[in-house]
Computed example of a mutant assay.
Amino acid sequence: MNQKSITSLKENTILQKKHHKRKIDIAIYLMTIPAVVLFAAFHTFPVLKGIYYSFTNWDGLSLDYKFVGLRNYLNLIGDKNVWNSYIFTFKFALVSTILVNIISLLLAMGLNTKIKFKNFFRAVYFLPNVLSILIVGFIFNYIFAYVIPALGTKLGIELLKSNILGNQKFAWIGVVIVAVWQASALNTILYLSGLQTVPEELYEAASLDGANKFQEFWNVTFPVIAPFFTINMVLAMKNFLMVFDHVMSLTSGGPGRATESISLLIYRSGFAGGEFAYQSANSVIYFMFIIIISVFQIKFLQKREMDM
């Protein structure tokens, strides 16, 4: 076989490989089409329709509606119920995010030590994440309404004698307790995964340098698990800002409107209150707030990771 034949054979082989790769690429793209179509049909299209309706006065039922421009958005500024829902939601999300990350990190550090039945405790701590939010809400509703007041009466503790969910001033604390209890499950597992990536040699070096437990955590453990901290903070804040099920099952937004979250307000007023277009505008603002806060968190926390 001469040199020309060898060169021709190599070129044919290269062309065949490129053709085969092109076929694989086309097949991959074709496989993604069903997912893209479903995502567009059930997510992208409804979002775009919601933005479109936010500039109208549609009530969600009638066939007739007209464009009103930015009127819905301007009316949101002076709506007391909207302001109350935003204040409650941001207060709830901020407190819950801080608490769930502190508790989850402490639990994860405890589970990461050499204790007996460690795998059993991991399963127990993860159990709340498996339970339905509505079921958890109904159970805690019973506990707050009957068990704790009965216990408070028996022990003579005045603070525990009444149902906290019926107190307009403190009902939000009851929602925080339940939400943090359930959310801590997943966050604990994530932190535990992060703690297992910390090399043991770093702890030995810190111990030789005479570092105490706090210095060991702040200078060794936390810098390594900083990416996990970023993930947990962003996910927790996003999920708590979107709170709906916990409020619905515990207080239904009450007493009065003391625990009415933004999601609950949009659902009630938009679908049952004939304010579909108005609450669509509220949804757009709500979505923008979540995006802005999430982006700010990511940028701030990732910058902190680099500085550590």
Rank of each mutant, 00 (worst) to 15 (best):
L160M: 05
P255C: 08
V180I: 07
M248R: 12
A108L: 03
A281P: 09
R268S: 12
I28P: 12
G254T: 00
S269I: 02
V224K: 03
K114A: 09
Q168D: 10
Q196D: 05
K303E: 09
W172E: 02
A93P: 11
P46E: 05
D64S: 15
E11P: 00
F55N: 00
A108N: 05
K23F: 04
L202T: 00
N219G: 02
S261C: 10
G210C: 05
G152M: 08
P255Q: 10
V100P: 12
K169Q: 14
N167S: 06
F39R: 05
M242Y: 01
K161M: 09
N57M: 03
L48D: 07
I292N: 01
N187W: 08
F289E: 06
L99V: 07
K238N: 03
R304V: 00
N232H: 02
H20W: 12
A93Y: 11
G174E: 08
I148V: 12
S5G: 02
P128E: 11
L131V: 14
L61W: 13
A108E: 03
Q279M: 15
E158H: 09
K21S: 10
F240K: 13
T7A: 13
Q168S: 15
M248Q: 14
L264I: 07
T197Y: 03
A206T: 01
A236M: 02
L61E: 10
L208H: 00
Q168G: 13
G210R: 08
F222D: 00
P227T: 02
S132Y: 04
Q302F: 02
N84I: 13
H246P: 04
R257C: 01
Y52M: 06
I14G: 01
I87C: 08
S261G: 08
I24Y: 11
H43P: 00
S207G: 05
I164Y: 01
Y52W: 08
G194N: 00
P199F: 00
F42V: 09
D209R: 02
V295S: 07
F217L: 07
Y286Q: 07
I139H: 05
D59W: 01
T230G: 02
F92L: 10
A258N: 11
I87F: 12
F287E: 05
K18L: 15
H43I: 14
K238H: 01
F121Y: 15
I143W: 04
T221S: 12
T97K: 04
F92V: 04
L195P: 05
L38T: 14
F289I: 15
L9C: 06
P199I: 01
L192A: 04
F222L: 15
A123G: 15
I115G: 12
V130L: 15
K21H: 08
Y146V: 05
M233W: 02
F126M: 07
E201F: 02
S263D: 10
E11I: 10
N2D: 15
L94V: 15
N12C: 08
L61S: 13
I135T: 09
D245A: 09
S294M: 09
Y203Q: 00
F222K: 10
T13D: 09
E305Y: 11
Y29E: 12
L151E: 03
L159G: 00
S104H: 06
A40Y: 13
